[in-house]
Nucleic acid binder design. Structure first.
Lengths: 248, 248
DNA sequence: TTCTTAGAATTGTCGGACTGTCGGACTTGG
DNA sequence: CCAAGTCCGACAGTCCGACAATTCTAAGAA
């Protein structure tokens, strides 16, 4: 006679509050930019204590569905990609994602972004790419080099004008590219090879040459793995949380 | 003289609590499975009130970093992919991601999963794929058909044994495949074409034929777009939240 | 030893209270 | 009329204390 009833899912009041607010948001009754009622008002509406409302709100706040400027009222907002991908990144690290996995993902995502970037880019992004490449010339500070690398790939993915790809790519990039800091000291020629590749890719995008952009990006990513193996690093090495997330 | 000072960001106590706990978790001092101290103990440790601790905890809870069953103690846990991708999915919808964007992403992600799945799969997953295809035979209930479709692609991505790809793919699949419910009624042959494609893909994976799996998956996804256009649906149509998320 | 069970511990929720900050209205001086 | 100073109400952040329901724990019974 066990299992006669499903383990009845009694959710706490604060969970109901957040679930209900979430529902209002993605049903469109609350649009981005709208102001939420006061905590006190919400408490009255739901018939719970203000403390309870606050606990519920924290969840939405954490999801990026609502945000506050200063100590003002809460406003509904579109979750920034940063919030999402930092959580995804953390999840990947906790699952001990390996270099190999990240590389495999990057090998399909990055070239796709480059290819689409070549056809969809705005002038603005081409300019930013050019600037990025220019700033990278001759830089040998490791950390700075990595930052520019990450920025480069982020720019490429932005130029693709594809939200889905952008969001898919970000956690992968956030983890894979900082690994360059491990690789670079072991492989003298890594820096210059990277610079050349970036230059070619930026050029191809600027020229709207999709297949060339894709090819070079693929080479660029493939190169990363080759370097990794050449430096005798294991493909199955779990990748750590990057500085950018570990601190915050 | 502008920008002499950064806009000073004062973070509230509850934010510090969650940030600090997060730090403990990804520094490894708190491993998955560990029990967190009592709310009262945490309050004392941080020198804040229990209410404040609770608000901080809600954030981690929402991130999936800690979880609780019933009224028991909190335990550290690795975020399930479900939590992450449902948030990513919501974000995509709020940004009015279009069919085109999702399709473009799927066109690179799904074939990559199929290809890797062919080389990395376990017997277990091959069996599940076979079963899925078998169950799909002759089904014409729309909703059931979509569920099986989604499950099929999820299985393929699992067989790839790549966490990064899995996580990247999920939000895209969660949004794109339910759109089949819009397409199918307008296009009589859609169902059978889908069935055939799934059959071929599952076969290729079972045979460990990577290039064939990849090719068929690409055709399968390409077909989806062709059908979409044939049914006179706009590529730039924003995709809605799928049932699976809208309810919960 | 294993099983029960009373008591301690812990979570969820509540009501109330205080402070700091923000925005707006009002006042004052130029 | 405009700028600066002042006051006041609204509201978020924090704290305190309390209580019921549930879970944990350890003593006592079988």
């Amino acid at each position: 006679m066990t299992m006669l009833f499903d383990k009845l899912n009694v959710l706490s009041a604060y969970q109901i509050v957040s679930r209900e607010l979430r529902r209002l948001i993605d049903s469109g009754e609350l649009k981005a930019g709208d102001q939420l009622p006061t905590e006190a008002e919400l408490a009255q509406m739901f018939g719970v204590n203000r403390s309870t409302v606050r606990e519920g709100i924290r969840q939405l706040e954490n999801e990026g569905l609502v945000s506050r400027e200063g100590r003002k009222r809460l406003t509904v907002s579109v979750p920034g990609s940063g919030k999402i991908s930092s959580q995804a990144t953390r999840a990947l690290v906790m699952r001990q994602v390996t270099f190999r996995e990240l590389w495999e993902a990057a090998l399909v995502l990055e070239p796709a972004c480059a290819s689409l970037g070549a056809t969809n880019h705005d002038d603005e992004q081409v300019e930013a790419l050019r600037l990025n490449v220019e700033m990278s010339r001759g830089v040998d500070d490791l950390r700075r080099c990595t930052d520019l690398d990450m920025a480069f790939h982020a720019l490429v993915s932005e130029s693709a004008h594809n939200t889905a790809l952008l969001l898919s790519r970000e956690p992968v990039g956030l983890l894979l590219f900082p690994a360059f800091e491990i690789l670079s000291p072991l492989l003298p020629q890594a820096n210059s090879r990277q610079f050349v590749a970036h230059e070619r890719i930026a050029d191809a995008i600027a020229k709207s040459n999709a297949s060339e952009a894709e090819t070079w990006m693929r080479k660029h990513i493939a190169d990363f793995r080759r370097g990794w193996e050449m430096a005798n690093l294991s493909l199955d090495l779990p990748i750590d949380l990057p500085r950018s997330l570990a601190e915050n």
